[in-house]
Amino acid sequence: MSQGDERGYGDEPGGRTDDAYSTLGGTRQTRTRLPGGDEGDGYGRRPARNSRSLVMIVGVVVLLIAAIAFANQSGNGDEGSGGSGKEPPAAGAGPTAATGTKPVQGKNGTIASGFAHDEQGAQSAAANYAVALVSAEILQPDRRGVIVRQIFIAERVGELEAKFNQAYSKDFLDKVGLDANGNAAEGMTYVSRTAPVGTKAVAYSAESATVEVWCTGVFGTAGVSSTNPVSNDWFTMTLKLQWAGNDWKVDSFSQKEGPAPVNTDRTASNADEIAKAVEEYGGFTYAR
């Protein structure tokens, strides 16, 4: 709204006029101040100044009351988010919202830890664990065991570490252009970067949760002579979590393709640009 549209600045009937010398009623008659002139203006009428002052005082009081009411209403809304009587939001997809609970308290190595013991904490844990499980580090034998012990419940560590070692065998590493230590050849950069797009709690209790994480990512080897060029993918990872050791940990997980959008005709960046982007842009800690 423009300044000229604001009410009470000349356009509203009864508002101030541009004539600083105009008098009550526009008569332009000179008023004579008599002794005790607070009672009248010489024509048996109360001065306009008193009426305007009263209107201004009433207006200020109304504004103050409205401001106090608004502040109290905002305060109640914040308290309601903490569970003071407001109805919970409808089930389904929703944006990240402030809950008053810090979702991530710290880090265990490069992986976030200390997730809140609630449904949003479980979703935050699942998103961060999905990133770690599809990272370039999981292909490196010396890092793989550390990641598995950080993410999974203690009862599953030995079994899952053996399965990871079998899945990421030397033959597999050869196919993606990596050596036995999971490193790319000289002049090459292996890329495996995952970005969660959204999370959904399929099931939740205080002791366990099942969370789906919809992800996209870039994967491949950047380099002039690469036979495994970097491409993007869309997939959904389902993680079954347990509350163990004062944190959410993974019991098991699975992965399926999609949902995937239609690809655009955007020109692909060259290998040097991709490699530089991976080196310069760090990852995120994900939280709801």
Rank of each mutant, 00 (worst) to 15 (best):
G220C: 02
L139S: 00
R31H: 07
W248Y: 05
S252K: 11
D18Y: 07
A268D: 14
A122S: 05
Q29W: 11
V55H: 06
L139Y: 06
V148G: 00
G198E: 14
I68C: 09
S135Q: 01
L178W: 02
A222Q: 04
G245D: 12
N128D: 06
A287M: 14
N76Q: 10
S169Y: 04
K163M: 10
V131Y: 00
S226H: 01
D38W: 14
A125T: 03
T96C: 08
A71H: 14
N50H: 12
V218N: 07
F70H: 13
Y9V: 15
H117S: 14
A287I: 15
R45T: 08
A167Y: 06
S84L: 08
D251S: 13
A162I: 02
E207I: 09
A48G: 11
R28P: 04
V134M: 15
V224K: 09
W234H: 10
M1N: 15
A184T: 03
T236Q: 00
S74V: 14
V278E: 11
N165Q: 10
A97E: 13
I274E: 10
G85R: 00
V131I: 02
L24H: 09
T110C: 08
V197S: 03
R46A: 14
T236R: 00
F70K: 12
G106T: 06
S231P: 06
N181P: 03
R288T: 03
E39K: 15
E159Y: 08
A98K: 15
T227W: 06
K107T: 11
V62M: 13
G121K: 02
D18S: 12
E137K: 10
S51L: 08
E159A: 09
S113K: 06
Y190V: 00
A98E: 12
T30Q: 14
F115P: 03
T210W: 12
T236Y: 01
E186Q: 15
P95K: 06
V211R: 00
T27P: 02
T99W: 09
G177N: 03
S135C: 02
N76M: 09
P47E: 09
I68S: 13
T101Y: 12
S205N: 02
V278M: 11
W243N: 06
V55D: 01
F70N: 11
S84F: 07
S252W: 11
